[in-house]
Design a protein around this nucleic acid. Structure first.
Length: 423
RNA sequence: GGAGAAAUGGCAGAGCGGUCGAAUGCGGCAGUCUUGAAAACUGUUGAGGGUCACACCUCCGGGGGUUCGAAUCCCUCUUUCUCCGCCA
């Protein structure tokens, strides 16, 4: 959520930059400012009334002490009136604050100046690509066929146990999953991220903290009995570590990594593009997350991009990096780079990582601050990225590494899998 | 799941319904002393709103109530601890 003082001071620029997302925020921004104005006025009136009633109460106390009960009783009548006033003002204030917040929840983050204009994913900018796309045999199969052929992922079984989108990994398939998780975690901790194991269910406050609530409620599985939500990404529990936290400047930067399954309802997604591992309700992901000083958060973003590149290079997968356009960049993000792996048999790019700088957008909701060199509390910047999401990496490996003898295992993974080929 | 106890500032820990945003200790910061450090001493040290700056207002786990006035009384929820039960 954007900060009101920031909106006030940069009104025109905010509107101009939000236009990159193809939204005309003029009215929303003006409403924010006028609601905030109203909030301040009401607050002042309320404060004055409260101040008066505080003074009166003290006087009454003193009068009682000095035995002047009559005078005290006279003053009491006055405070009764004041009570009415404060109640009315208080109601008005909370209405205004609610309206203001509701509006603020609807305004997305201001895109970074480098975010290109555009409306769909076709307008994303390819900024880097690496790796060679293998020439496969004409009998090459998409990963869901390979999964069946080598009996390593059973989609139907998952269907039976739970439903579509909950695959069962078997044998070498399961082992490969575990290998990938361990390998990613090792790479991330080597790069300085501290490993965490996080809860898979979060409460309402955490959902609000990272912005899944109130808007994207339908995307999460909700355990109504206990009012908990299954996490759609470890970003939620990971970032909420820092909810209501004031750090010392010397504690920055903070980098954490964690593996969790992720649960997404993906309501309204159907068709060929969601076949096999392309889109699941439950999938595994290893995440990296940073809390940074505002001065160097973009440097940190570059470091994260470089880090993910190293992993893909080691896995020898053909990939490219996109700078997301205004129409595609997430609600909370200021700048996002997506990584895509080429799925040779499907002949399409699959998104496997998304690395973003949220600047203060999340921190503002979380109240994540640090004491700056002047001793003032200042909002920190948060960033996160997948490093990496499993299913599509797996899809990429299965498809790109298939040979007539079986599926070869990328060399860096062999110490983790204990086998060299799936056949 | 049952019974009991508790929740106060970074931590520990006081707090007869008014003078309490809150004693005291520790920690943090600044200074004195010292070649430097430690010790000692002095001062300072929660968050948010508001203001040019003050004033002023709100916050003692969350929510509600009683009262002219609540950290203090009542209700409720949550969490923690102890005991019992169940259990990976």
């Amino acid at each position: 959520m954007l900060q009101v003082p920031f909106i006030r001071e940069n009104k025109d620029n905010v509107i101009k930059q939000l236009a990159v997302r193809n939204i005309d925020a003029t009215k929303m921004i003006e409403d924010v400012i006028s609601l905030d104005e109203e909030r301040k006025q009401t607050q002042t009136l309320l404060d004055n009334a409260l101040a008066e009633s505080n003074t009166l109460s003290k006087e009454i106390g003193n009068l009682y002490k000095s035995g002047k009960a009559d005078e005290a009783n006279a003053l009491k009548e006055k405070t009764t009136e004041l009570k009415e006033t404060t109640k009315t003002l208080n109601d008005k204030l909370s209405q205004t604050v609610d309206a203001l917040n509701e509006l603020l929840y609807k305004i997305p983050n201001v895109p970074h100046s480098s975010v290109p204009k555009g409306s769909t994913e076709d307008d994303n900018e390819v900024v880097f690509s690496e790796g060679t796309i293998p020439t496969l045999d004409k009998n090459a199969l998409p990963h869901w066929e390979l999964a069946k052929k080598y009996d390593i992922i059973d989609f139907e079984l998952g269907n039976k146990i739970t439903g579509a989108g909950f695959p069962v990994y078997k044998g070498k398939g399961a082992r490969l999953q575990r290998a990938l998780i361990a390998y990613f975690l090792d790479k991330n901790t080597e790069a300085g991220y501290t490993e965490y194991q996080l809860p898979l269910l979060v409460n309402e406050a955490s959902g609000f903290g990272t912005g899944q609530l109130p808007d994207k409620e339908g995307q999460m599985y909700h355990v109504t009995e206990d009012n908990l939500y299954l996490i759609p990404t470890s970003e939620v529990p990971g970032t909420n570590i820092f909810r209501d936290v004031i750090l010392e400047e010397s504690q920055l930067p903070i980098g954490i990594t964690g593996y969790t399954p992720c649960f997404r309802r993906e309501a309204g997604s159907y068709g060929a593009h969601v076949r096999g591992l392309n889109r699941l309700h439950q999938f595994d992901k290893v995440e990296i997350l940073r809390v940074e000083h505002p001065n160097r958060s973009y440097e940190a973003l570059d470091e994260m991009v470089e880090h993910v590149k190293t992993i893909l290079k080691e896995l020898k997968l053909p990939y490219r990096i996109l700078r997301l356009c205004g129409g595609d960049v997430g609600f909370t993000s200021a700048l996002t780079f997506d990584f895509e792996v080429f799925s040779t048999a499907q002949e399409r790019w699959l998104e496997i990582s998304s690395v973003s700088n949220f600047e203060t957008f999340q921190a503002n909701r979380l109240k994540l601050r640090f004491k700056n060199s002047e001793g003032k509390n200042e909002l920190a910047h948060t960033l996160n990225g997948s490093s990496l999401a499993l299913p599509r990496v797996l899809a990429g490996i299965l498809e790109n590494y298939q040979t007539k003898d079986g599926i070869e295992i990328p060399e860096v993974l062999i110490p983790y899998t204990g086998f060299k080929i799936i056949d």
